[in-house]
């Protein structure tokens, strides 16, 4: 799959040591357009809409900040915790900079936290919203559409 110069540059920026020490691609060696296409197909199979997913993730990120660094229970469904650090991270697509805020969202079942959780940052949200990019497999901030379905849209 051929990549535009913009995506080629973004893939270079995603390597370990450029923007973050461990990069955005984990051990995934696919071109990012392929990663995006595969995840878009998986989102479709899981009947997930990007807008709805991003809106819920942003809501949980905002709620997590209210805990002032400690975990908080949101809507009785999730325990969320914000981790904030000083500074900003640049988008690998060079289309913005984002505060260093991560949220860990853990699904609650029958009042107890489960082992199902997702971790994402303000930058991750931007990449999902604008580029449909969930990061490469094996990366610390990779979220698969399946994990999103399991944690955010559990029945």
């Amino acid at each position: 799959m051929k990549m535009s110069p913009e995506y080629t540059k973004a893939q270079a920026n995603m390597q370990p040591g450029v923007i973050t020490s461990d990069g955005f691609l984990g051990n995934d060696e696919r071109p990012i357009v392929e990663i995006i296409a595969d995840d878009e197909a998986e989102m479709k199979r899981a009947s997930l809409e990007f807008d709805e997913t991003v809106a819920l993730m942003r809501h949980l990120l905002n709620e997590s900040r209210k805990g002032l660094g400690e975990p908080v229970t949101v809507d009785g469904k999730w325990i969320v915790q914000a981790f904030e650090a000083r500074g900003f991270l640049a988008s690998p697509f060079e289309d913005g900079i984002f505060r260093k805020i991560n949220a860990k969202v853990t699904l609650i079942h029958e009042g107890e936290p489960t082992e199902h959780s997702i971790l994402y940052s303000d930058l991750s949200l931007h990449l999902i919203e604008k580029r449909h990019f969930f990061q490469g497999k094996g990366g610390s901030f990779r979220i698969s559409p399946a994990a999103i379905k399991r944690v955010l849209f559990a029945d």
Binding site: I19, T20, S21, A85, R86, G87, F88, L89, K100
Partner: peptide
Amino acid sequence: SACGGRGSCGA
């Protein structure tokens, strides 16, 4: 420096 010179902490 909190980011090891990567230009992301501003320290």
